[in-house]
Nucleic acid binder design. Sequence first.
DNA 1: AAAACTAACTAACGTTTGTTAGTTTCGGAA
DNA 2: TTCCGAAACTAACAAACGTTAGTTAGTTTT
Lengths: 193, 193
Amino acid sequence: MPSVPKISKRAIILREAAKLFKEKGFGGATMRDLAERVGIEAASIYNHIRSKDELLEEICFGIGRKYDEQLSEIAAKKISYPEKIEAVIAFHIQMIIEDANAVSVLNNDWKFLNSGQMIEFKAMRNEYEKHLAALISKGIEHGAFKKINVSVALFTILSSLRWVELWYKPSRGISKEDLAKDISAILMNGVKA
Amino acid sequence: MPSVPKISKRAIILREAAKLFKEKGFGGATMRDLAERVGIEAASIYNHIRSKDELLEEICFGIGRKYDEQLSEIAAKKISYPEKIEAVIAFHIQMIIEDANAVSVLNNDWKFLNSGQMIEFKAMRNEYEKHLAALISKGIEHGAFKKINVSVALFTILSSLRWVELWYKPSRGISKEDLAKDISAILMNGVKA
DNA sequence: AAAACTAACTAACGTTTGTTAGTTTCGGAA
DNA sequence: TTCCGAAACTAACAAACGTTAGTTAGTTTT
């Protein structure tokens, strides 16, 4: 009874893999390194997973699905378009903070997915961007946003969120709510006085 | 006389290395792969360079110095602070477009520098960010910018430029001048109508 | 013409890599 | 206690890695 683990070893391996991939990159991370962090021998890992590739796949698509779900939820809400964009900004920050390692892997190491999975991943990402672009387009039509280039706005917003991954630490003493508010303020109203 | 190359082989190797590192990451790139692209055997590369690490070092610091120089030039110009920030945006885009591969390596693979060089690199980058942050701070003091969190503004601007590396291709039919104008417009005045 | 240099080659080195096979350990159910 | 399956271990594999050694052909310098 005391030995029933609350978190499965597989989950521990995935968590440590995400951390390791973030630190060293998928190519630079070794199974022996991962094993040491988990506290077992490299060969023993294969009692829980099929391959190194499988780790990457599970991290990328696991997080990817979370993004999809959240975006769909926000899109369905009955709020204004600026509020929707602000909600997207807030949940991106939320994801980065509560799942920093996995998000980093998704952002940086997706290109090491094997070819079939990479095609699937790109399709998923394209759809996400299209979905978000549609929100901006409609916002422009409704007069809520300036008549800006939608692609430029889309990627400016998405990219401006990515640095949070590298920058955020609780020790900086700024809450995620305040951070979301500050970033939203800049993207919505700009820096110019 | 006809065999005097306009570009040294070393330069060709560096150019191809940047392209290869961008595609596969530093860890995923192999010397044999690089050699094939250059059209010689892997061992022959070592007639021109000392090590794989040296390639990374030269790419990262070469581009890093370019950034430093350009920023200093802009800071010294007698123009308004918003104009300075816009000039920074424009030259970042310029760098990304004319040296896409090397910029990508600097952004993504600096963490594979060996420890000494990595310390040096981080110091260089910190100084760059400080330099740019000072521009924003002074802009706020002069009343040219809103009273925003300087760090947040700094990283929002820097990050919002990085996607250009992944997104820009001439085939999209937008000039770098127009791109700079669109991004500047969003960062200066926001998306809200 | 001799000597030195450049830049290519082939072959191999010692490691490290992801992974497999076979074996042992151990906690819980019967 | 006995048994069983899960999960650890040790040992090893073949492939790939960055790099070195030794050599050779062609060019430049003296």
